[in-house]
Nucleic acid binder design. Structure first.
Lengths: 327, 327
DNA sequence: AGAATATAGTTGTATCAAGCAACCATATTG
DNA sequence: CAATATGGTTGCTTGATACAACTATATTCT
């Protein structure tokens, strides 16, 4: 059994070595591309993701950031990729393939795919599947084991996850507006009336962000807005907070980020000592309702509304300021 | 189906990329060893083979010979390997691990094996086996496809196979003698008497190699003698060739090299116009007997002999010069 | 036996990927 | 506002890879 494991390990290692060589990773450039292995990986990665930052690339390729920095510059000089300083975080730059880079990626794909195809197509479907599961399982196992073994460099929790930002960010009004429009048009067929209202509301709200009773949080990732929540501490008056523009991109549902947004906003409300927090929503958004109720809101009112070009049942939730010392 | 293949290809590529990165082949040195990937491969290869030439290393690692040359030098300077100019082919040098190199290999093995072990040991035996077969099949497929696609650089037929050499080579007497001694002591318990006779015979024969009626062929690989055959055109007189010291290392049985040796020698005999070729052997060596008979020999005599410290039945075979025009 | 060719390995030369450390600019935290 | 963290760049060094031209030895051909 132990011997068996040792034998398996030995054979796996031997096969890995062979694989490395066959794929050309001891060579200066990968055959068929004229590019070094790391460049090919970078192009493929950027291409399939659409947009990446240097840091993300560094994490994916497991290469030093200085190495990545130069790799990126070289690719820019070759006009394979372009960089755009992020609007919302001036430190980072978003990388994407240029037209030429797209073509290069296509060439790489053609070459690599045909290499793989020629290799595996003579094999039975069964064998092919075995190869695939074997490889993926092995990679996964290696990755898991690496992450378990380097507590010094743990997986970044933020890796590939949007960050929660506060305050105004360039593009935030447009971003949140289109998020709402896309979400609700798909869900219930809202159209321009609704989107206009969102844009208008935000446009009136954002200039008031400098007052301490107002705040906005957004989920941002690579200049894309994937979620938001805001506390308008003025429009309702009477020391009541108005929770507005709470939305999370469908892709992030279930990620826990929505709850984080909501709880951050409520913490803010409590810090500001608002007597109550009110919010308006629609009947049918069951997941959201559950979230509200878990966090101290109760449904207080329900009525038909037609203002968005559709007949909807609107709902109003209210949450009182928790007693001090409460959990 | 086609789509399925494309999907499989895509996933395989993605897994390969991940594998490359996890194993550190985009990095300057492999973690845990401090050595570049190519060095690690070289050490493992030399270590597991025991002895290699630079050319063989180049073929295995798929690297340029100049690259290998420098890699080898660097490893020699680090005292990881040693080189010995081959005694039988002054162009090539045999590379082997030094004491220090052995230790390095051990370290590499420990590191790599534990990396693999930690990765796969949480998995079921079944999964482990899947990984193994997947990897090996894939490597094999890639290799096959590469070789099919580069008729310009076909697999060397001589790759890792001994070459047939003619004439004297340093170490040939000792090499052939020990080959005989090892083979026959294991087979039938011959001992010193026999080995002495072989050595003595060779010692008397080799100096006569400069005469055109004598010749010796040997199978040589990395300074090891793995087979031999000789034609003594003088000792029997009467224009009769004496076929002597025909032996092939057990490892090479079935490789076709024995037949090649024999036919080369017989071609030589025919070229020299010997009237007959005689040889003495023992009863029981059935494979050899078949080979003799396939090539024109017939058994002409059989008698008991005790000269080698064992009672054996000796046999004499004779082959006449084929008629001209014969096939 | 001698000429032509092939093979093993080295060396000149050039390129450039990788990593470390120190740095700058921007963001976040407290 | 100060301290710290983060994304990215730059100076510096190392050294792996490849191509081409070369030397020395082996093999093949006639």
């Amino acid at each position: 059994m132990t011997d068996n494991l040792a034998g398996t390990i030995h054979k796996i290692r031997s096969a890995s070595r062979s694989l490395i060589r066959e794929l050309g990773f001891l060579n200066k450039t990968i055959a068929g591309t004229g590019l070094p292995g790391s460049y090919v990986h970078a192009i493929v990665e950027i291409g399939t993701t659409g947009e990446l930052t240097a840091r993300e690339l560094s994490e994916k390729l497991l290469l030093e950031k200085s190495t990545i920095s130069r790799l990126v510059r070289s690719l820019i000089e070759r006009e394979e990729i372009s960089e755009n300083r992020s609007l919302v975080d001036a430190r980072q730059k978003n990388l994407r393939l240029t037209q030429k880079g797209q073509q290069t990626l296509t060439k790489i794909n053609l070459y690599a795919a045909s290499q793989v195809r020629e290799a595996i197509s003579p094999l039975s479907l069964n064998k092919q599947q075995e190869i695939l599961t074997g490889l993926t399982d092995y990679c996964l196992a290696l990755k898991n084991s690496r992450q378990k073994n380097s507590p010094s460099a743990p997986t970044r929790i933020t890796e590939n996850l949007p960050r929660i930002r506060t305050g105004y960010l360039p593009g935030i009004i447009g971003g949140i507006t289109s998020l709402h429009a896309g979400y609700y048009s798909r869900l219930v067929g809202f159209s321009d009336t609704f989107e206009t209202a969102v844009a208008d509301g935000l446009a009136r709200f954002v200039p008031r962000l400098d007052r301490k009773q107002n705040e906005i949080w957004s989920l941002e990732h690579r200049d894309k807005f994937l979620g938001s929540i805001a506390i308008d501490g003025e429009d309702l008056g009477e020391n009541i907070a108005h929770l507005r523009w709470f939305i999370v991109d469908k892709e992030l549902h279930g990620s826990g980020l929505g709850k984080k947004l909501l709880q951050g906003a409520l913490q803010f409300c409590d810090g500001q000592n608002f007597r109550e927090t009110h919010l308006w929503t629609f009947k049918g958004l069951d997941v959201a309702r559950k979230l509200y109720e878990e966090n101290g809101f109760s449904l207080v009112e329900e009525y038909k509304g037609t203002q968005w070009g559709k007949q909807m049942i609107e709902q109003k939730f209210v949450r009182p300021l928790p007693l001090k010392g409460d959990v």
